[in-house]
Amino acid sequence: MNTSFAPGRDIGARDTGHRSNRLLAALAPRDLEVLKPHLEPVALKRGQVLFEPGDDVVTTYFPCHRTMASLLIVTRDGREVEAATIGREGAVGGIVSEGHKPAYGRAVVQLPGDAYAISTSHLEAAKTGSPRFGDLFSRYADSLLAQMMQGVACNALHRVDERCARWLLAVHDRAGHGVIHLTHESLAEMLGVQRSTVTTVTGELQARGLIRTHRGRVEVVDRRGLERVACECYAAVEQHFATLLPEVAE
């Protein structure tokens, strides 16, 4: 079945529509009905920048299916490092802010695909009008903050191979299959290390039979083995998310 979105397509036309984003799927029917007229199906491209540091975040995106975006911290010399990974379990932009919403980092699409876009002002109005709705997004904001906090500890305390395994597992969860389209350059940027370091680490993981690398892609061969290599951060973030948002977690 073709699951691609058409611009302007009625969300109610497919019973899989909003359910392809788990945060939207967790909304009470009445709250979803409030949002539906303002949710616009969009197709996001790989490398598309959703907002830059300092931009007013006027649009919030709900990734669907296998779509994934990264929140990046950008240094003065142009280097980037990932602060958070967001897929169909969440939303990008405008989660808790009111009024002027300047972005602190850059949001970039890593895995292209479908998403829903909504004006952040409409999202804010809906949260204000429904305490249950507001609570859901507050809990999601807490889980996103936990991911960022754990990432700080991970970058400071854990080996690159452990961090690399953690990141591949997070992307594998969101990609929904074993093949991840990813270059060594992109992975190096996400981890904040040199490309040569990534080449060495992925080579070691491949030699252990955990992944298989091809030109521009990485295939997860042994997920359980990759979980054993990954640092504690992966399980800690997943557990916190499941505790805070059991209706969103798979």
Rank of each mutant, 00 (worst) to 15 (best):
E82Q: 14
D114C: 14
R14E: 01
H38S: 09
F5W: 01
G54Q: 02
V108C: 09
P63G: 01
V81R: 15
N2T: 01
V42F: 01
P112I: 04
S143G: 10
H38L: 00
W167F: 10
V96I: 11
E227G: 02
A236W: 08
G8T: 00
Q48T: 01
E89Y: 14
R46Q: 12
Q48N: 00
A91R: 13
H158A: 01
V171P: 05
R159I: 01
I180N: 03
Y234G: 08
G216I: 12
N155Y: 14
L187Q: 05
E33L: 04
R14C: 00
S20T: 13
A107C: 03
G192F: 09
R30I: 14
A236S: 03
G178D: 15
L24G: 11
L32S: 05
C164G: 08
Y61E: 03
E80G: 07
V58K: 14
A69M: 05
V57T: 11
V221D: 04
T67W: 05
L244N: 05
P7R: 02
C64W: 05
A69T: 15
T213N: 08
D56K: 00
T200H: 06
G93N: 13
L32C: 07
H122E: 15
D161R: 13
A125Q: 04
I180W: 09
A141S: 03
M1L: 00
Q147M: 06
Q147G: 05
S70R: 15
L182Q: 13
D173M: 09
G151W: 04
Q110K: 11
H181C: 08
V74D: 09
H38G: 07
Q150P: 00
V179C: 01
A170M: 14
P7Y: 03
A230L: 07
F241L: 14
R46C: 06
L244P: 07
G151F: 03
V58F: 06
I211H: 08
K101V: 08
R79Y: 02
Y61V: 10
M148I: 15
L111Y: 10
D142C: 08
L39D: 12
A28P: 04
V198C: 02
D222H: 05
R217W: 09
I118T: 11
A43V: 08
S143P: 02
E250D: 15
A207S: 15
G99F: 10
L144Y: 14
V179K: 05
M68Q: 14
A230W: 02
V220E: 12
A141V: 01
G54T: 11
A84W: 10
R88P: 02
A170C: 08
R106S: 03
L72Y: 14
A69Q: 00
L145T: 07
N2I: 12
L72V: 08
V109F: 04
P41Y: 00
H172S: 13
L71E: 13
L245D: 10
E227W: 00
M148G: 08
M148T: 13
G105I: 00
T128W: 11
P112K: 00
S130T: 10
D56Q: 05
I73V: 12
D10A: 15
T67F: 02
A188T: 02
T200V: 07
A242K: 09
R79N: 12
E189A: 14
E80S: 13
G209W: 06
E227D: 08
V96S: 14
H172I: 04
R217M: 13
Q110H: 11
L71Q: 13
D135E: 14
L32P: 10
T200S: 07
M68I: 11
I11D: 01
Q150V: 01
E232D: 11
E189T: 15
N21D: 07
